[in-house]
Design a protein around this nucleic acid. Structure first.
Lengths: 217, 217
DNA sequence: GTATCAAAGATTATCGATAATCTATAGGCG
DNA sequence: CGCCTATAGATTATCGATAATCTTTGATAC
């Protein structure tokens, strides 16, 4: 989700947040690393206040932990936690599918678009693009449910970040992972809503199976 | 969740957050009201900085909206949103029950404790106490699942706040709401795990029914 | 009478400095 | 030698003041 450079009027704290976010994602800051407010402030030539704000927001994204008078640390994201996030995501999407029900069949085209994007990215081995299209695919289901709290909760899982980490870390072959989404589309297309719900609930397990990983929640 | 007055060493920003939270909950600040940083700072005899932090945290709880250079407004929390939060909570708890499975039967005593707390609070018409015990009851189920992301996601719904709002706003008779929790205990006690999962999924609808409200999600 | 614009007022965002708190280190005591 | 305590250094939390931005008000032109 690239910022449009046209209206590059970020506040100082927004700019700092983006810098820190980038460094956490690309591994410059590793889990457990401490982030010292004044160091960042000096480096980016600002004062301490906007750095504190940025850290609070990253805390909201669960990327750092902040303790009183002890500052901020980059949060450890273990494989177990990524697995857990996938489980919760699938539980929410099962709910979404139940609620979206009939409306979903009207969005099959969007689902296929995401699916084809995943296939293409898998061919090229482009993990970032794959994660983006996977996200788009699942987002269609959640958005169709038309349920504000659901969408916000789903987004708060930070799935894109975590899925990217997951794929990069395990280094699995993306092709079968992409194909694992096809049955979901087919179930929706054929109106088998109960089947779609079940597939979504079992999605993480299916992913693990086709990726040849052990499913041990 | 009453603070134990013993270690009342809140930071300034924590104290401010509690004050603002209380005023939002009790209606002193109404939806749409603007909260002006310096007004609060002057009133509570602090500076602007901790007020800003408190507002950011309330933004994280989705109780206020903050726009750049325009300050904070109390967010409208519609009945629909509270209902949606209850739905997501129940979807998560269905997952929790499935995952906790057998372990849940070892926590029946805790569940009964929460249940009795609800009954007592219902007798006295004490909404705050009721919400606290309701929260404790449901938390047992979620914690037994031993699933970090689940617990965090569940907490992020801000259920206590919203349930308190819900109960106060609708002014329902708390007694039948308390009793609606008994079947869940009984299902767990008798080892009917599938039944327990189903009851949890249908919990918000059951609450609405016994409260004599219309269920229109 | 209405629309446009500019200045004044109000409020947020940021700054630089100080106070409060934590952590590591070194010294005293058993 | 190990454990507790005091102190120094580092870092966070808060403050008071200033800069940046938004909003309102009032004057002017049409």
């Amino acid at each position: 989700m690239a910022k449009t450079a046209a209206f590059e009027r970020l506040s100082t704290s927004d700019r700092i947040r983006e810098v820190l976010l980038g460094r956490i994602l690309d591994g410059t800051y590793k889990p457990g690393d401490r982030i010292i407010e004044m160091d960042i402030a000096r480096e980016l030539e600002t004062s301490q206040a906007p750095v504190r704000e940025a850290l609070r927001e990253l805390q909201g994204l669960r990327l750092v932990t902040v303790k009183p008078y002890r500052g901020a640390c980059v949060r450890e994201v273990t494989e177990q936690e990524m697995l857990e996030a996938l489980e919760i995501r699938s539980a929410l999407e099962e709910f979404a599918a139940r609620r979206a029900a009939a409306d979903l069949s009207g969005h099959v085209a969007d689902l296929r678009l995401g699916f084809q994007g995943m296939r293409a990215a898998a061919e090229k081995g482009d993990v970032d693009a794959f994660a983006r299209h996977d996200l788009a695919f699942h987002r269609v289901i959640v958005e169709t449910a038309d349920h504000g709290v659901l969408l916000r909760t789903w987004e708060s899982l930070g799935v894109e970040t975590r899925i990217r980490m997951f794929l990069k870390r395990t280094g699995v072959d993306l092709n079968p992972v992409a194909e694992a989404h096809l049955p979901i589309i087919e179930a929706i297309e054929s109106g088998a809503t109960a089947e779609a719900e079940h597939l979504l609930r079992a999605h993480p397990e299916a992913i693990y199976r086709v990726a040849g990983l052990e499913w041990a929640p």
